[in-house]
Simulated assay, not measured.
Amino acid sequence: MSQPVKLKTPLTDEDVSRLKAGDAVSLSGVIYTGRDAAHKRITQAMAEGREIPFPLEGAVIFYVGPSPAPPGKVIGAAGPTTSYRMDPFAPTLIKNGLKAMIGKGKRNQDVKEAMQKHKAVYLAAIGGAGALVAKAIKEAEVIAYPDLGPEAVRRLVVEDMPLICVNDVNGGDLYQQGKDAYKKA
């Protein structure tokens, strides 16, 4: 396996354009968390012309509701959430500058088309390995919607978070590639 592509946030069109479905990625910098309830609030605020919790330009959203931080840790287990629940909101965020989403599972066609049109990618974190993913998180701070508990929006600082590019800006889809390879075998 080749060396992971190292990326640092905020991401640019050039950063995401060099990724191909199947590439290993090592992500560092500031990322934000959000699940479906937070996405609904963010897109509603955007529709009403109100300020949102973080700048979208070049941003990365991690679909996670981490467990409470044990003593001496900044965060508890931080395994990815199934991404399709954010599909109704993702195209709006992508159109407004979001460059990457981190989760698990497939995305719908509208999200894939928005990624191609506006140059964004979908990255997968290792499902079922929340403790491993949490090791890459160096800082965690709730920045919006604390009433959502674990699903509040957090600002995370990550260092060498291990990810895989699932959907790239050219329409590459790792899940489809896997199916196609199996059919040929």
Rank of each mutant, 00 (worst) to 15 (best):
F89D: 09
K106S: 13
K99A: 11
R155H: 00
T92A: 09
E139V: 03
E113M: 12
P146D: 05
I137L: 10
G127S: 08
I126N: 08
E151P: 00
L98G: 11
N108M: 09
G127I: 12
A120D: 09
N108R: 08
P88I: 04
M101H: 05
P88F: 10
V153S: 04
P91T: 02
P88C: 13
F89P: 09
I143R: 03
L123W: 06
D110P: 11
A114R: 00
E139N: 03
A114V: 01
V142Q: 01
K117V: 12
A114H: 04
A140K: 01
D87F: 00
G97K: 00
A114G: 01
K99E: 07
A140D: 13
Y145D: 10
P91R: 02
E151K: 09
K138W: 05
G149H: 13
Q109A: 14
P146F: 01
L93H: 14
V142W: 04
H118A: 14
G127D: 10
G130W: 00
G97R: 01
L156Y: 04
P88R: 05
A134N: 00
K95P: 06
I137Q: 07
D147S: 13
M101Y: 13
L148M: 02
K99D: 04
K119R: 14
E151H: 05
P88G: 07
A90Q: 13
G128Q: 11
K119W: 00
H118M: 13
V142Y: 03
M115V: 07
I137R: 02
D87A: 09
A144K: 03
E141C: 10
R107Q: 13
A144N: 02
G149W: 11
A152G: 11
V121T: 08
L132W: 02
E113P: 02
M115Q: 11
